[in-house]
Design a protein around this nucleic acid. Structure first.
Lengths: 257, 257
DNA sequence: AATGAGCGTTGCAAGAGATGCAACGAACCT
DNA sequence: AGGTTCGTTGCATCTCTTGCAACGCTCATT
């Protein structure tokens, strides 16, 4: 819509790949060096871009700060966090909280397992959308038309033999999930990792977020993990209650000192 | 430098404060609604801004992803992480890693203490620059002129009775830190929390990052914490060695599954 | 020491593109 | 229904961006 801004913003993902010098930026943007320079300068002034000692540009610190503030504005996260911690204390496994936003599902909170085996996932990172249990819940809540549209657009990487292979299989899985009100991922992303997930609903009954418990085979079998389902659902319902304003908030214990 | 981009980027910090509607954005930017609309649309296309169900705008998901990728490009973080984890396993306290960038010091990694008492700090969050031990180390390495310039520009909030009160005191502290090659923060930020920090140097000998160990009074006294100084310094030196390429990397054990 | 290549930077003229206006449409409230 | 508020669109104006060419700097080569 706005060419100048469009070009400037195009620099960001480019620098996300790694540092680049003026020439490289100008080339990949398809503009004159002087133009790229001015755009970079503006980005720099806003702290989104940083110029390192070798003169090359990379993403700047303000980006972290912004992402941080954005995160703190997600009130669902605030509400959910103590519940996630409590669940983690009870079962010991890794707990995730995720939301859906414009064709992406991303983790907005995570409590690490209480044993050394860790999952590779990071807050802010997009989720493997075709296999993750939380993603299934979030997408299952869309209208049928939206689900079909999204399912068609996605890629279906075969992380493992259990990964969802194509749109048809995905839509079928979403239908099941929609029906039963919970979801699993049994080795669909990493051979040895299973997840159980439950939805968190807002006042309008729509799925606002989803949470999951993940554990590797070496710690508990898939069947054992499934026995946690009632607990996960209860936790999710408790969060839903607070989030939708039905339950008065009891003790909003923060993770402060 | 570029008015259009400047205005567009000005929207981001504004939205970081909380969701806003078109009118509010236009007003605070001092432009016509239609202009604000076009800028927001462009930001939206790039995923930096999200339009929530009540039509108001807030910061978008791409911001998280960008911040994430930016972080992963910081190779010092990759190198340091296993060392930080090991240190945390040894002493049990919270370990931080921070860098300096254009008048800001920010945490780029953190390993939580192994006991329930937690510090309030987040990766990506700017550090309390006038009191934090890591900040002292990072600023102490600047040239004298730069130090003076920065010291003058800063605010000196009195978090506690021990907080650095003014530029003069800060410069004096920086001189001490520069001299001794390590730094502390004894209750300067939170009454009950002490920190010991050591610098990580690049191949050119300049301070590239700083790491610290923090613990509350209720767990260890300041004196006890200070006994960890040699360990902290050794860890920092080990990281310096790898970062500057002097030490061959032994076992780069990642925090993957 | 001199020459040349490569890269970032600056001033400027031309015109593309951003801007604000006014008018429309939709939703909401009285 | 009538009125208000807010987001959206088309358009004419002219500001602001753009690419060019020239400059200066650093570094490598002869």
């Amino acid at each position: 819509m706005s060419q100048t801004v469009d070009r400037a913003l195009g620099i960001l993902p480019l620098l996300a790949e790694g540092p680049a010098d003026l020439g490289q930026v100008a080339d990949r943007l398809g503009v004159h060096k002087s133009t790229a320079l001015r755009l970079l300068r503006t980005l720099h002034e806003h702290g989104l871009v940083y110029r390192q000692s070798d003169q090359r540009y990379r993403l700047g610190a303000r980006l972290f700060a912004l992402a941080q503030e954005a995160m703190e504005n997600l009130d669902i996260r605030e509400i959910a966090h103590p519940h996630l911690v409590r669940l983690n204390e009870t079962c010991g496994h890794t707990v995730h909280l995720a939301v859906y936003e414009e064709n992406e599902v991303l983790y907005i909170d995570k409590v690490e397992s209480r044993y050394p085996v860790r999952m590779y996932s990071r807050i802010g990172k997009p989720v493997a959308i075709t296999v993750a249990a939380v993603a299934k819940l979030l997408l299952a809540d869309l209208s049928e038309a939206e689900r079909r549209a999204v399912a068609e657009k996605l890629e279906y990487p075969l992380y493992t033999a259990c990964s969802t292979p194509n749109p048809a299989a995905f839509l079928k899985e979403l239908a099941t999930v929609r029906e039963q009100g919970w979801a699993t991922d049994l080795g669909g992303h990493e051979e040895s990792i299973n997840c159980v997930a439950a939805p968190i609903r807002g006042a309008d009954g729509r799925v606002a977020a989803a949470m999951s418990v993940s554990a590797p085979n070496v710690v508990v079998t898939a069947d054992e993990l499934l026995t946690l389902l009632p607990l996960v659902r209860r936790t999710a319902d408790a969060i839903s209650g607070e989030y939708s304003g039905r339950t008065p908030v009891t003790t909003p214990d923060r993770d402060t000192v």
